[in-house]
Amino acid sequence: MDAHPTGAFEDMLGIVEELDTPDGYKAELIRGKVVDSSWPELRHMRPLRSLRRQLERHTPDGHDADVTPFLFSFPAAECAFGPDLHVADEAAFEAEGRHADGAALSLVAELTSDSSKDADWLDKLDTYGRVVPVYLVLDMQVEEITAFWDPSAKGYRSRTTVPFGKPLHIPAPFDFELETSGFTVPQDSDVQE
Rank of each mutant, 00 (worst) to 15 (best):
R52K: 14
T160E: 14
R52W: 01
A8I: 06
G14T: 07
L136W: 05
G182E: 15
A92V: 14
R57Y: 01
H99F: 15
E94K: 14
T184Q: 11
A95Y: 00
P167D: 11
D123C: 08
S152V: 00
H63W: 02
A103V: 04
M140S: 07
S116P: 09
A80H: 06
D190K: 06
Q141H: 09
D190I: 06
P60F: 01
W149T: 10
D36N: 13
L105H: 02
G14A: 07
F93K: 10
S158F: 01
E18V: 08
D123P: 00
D175Q: 04
A103D: 13
S152R: 02
V108G: 08
T184G: 10
W121F: 12
G165S: 10
E144V: 09
D114I: 05
I170K: 00
T127I: 14
L178F: 03
C79G: 08
P40T: 06
L71N: 13
E143V: 00
L71R: 09
S115F: 04
D84A: 11
V16H: 05
S158L: 06
C79L: 08
P5Q: 06
P151Y: 04
E10C: 02
R157Y: 02
V185I: 13
K33R: 15
G97A: 07
D36V: 08
E94L: 11
P83D: 07
A172M: 11
V191L: 04
A76D: 13
P186E: 15
H58F: 03
T146N: 09
L122Y: 08
I15V: 14
S73E: 12
K124M: 11
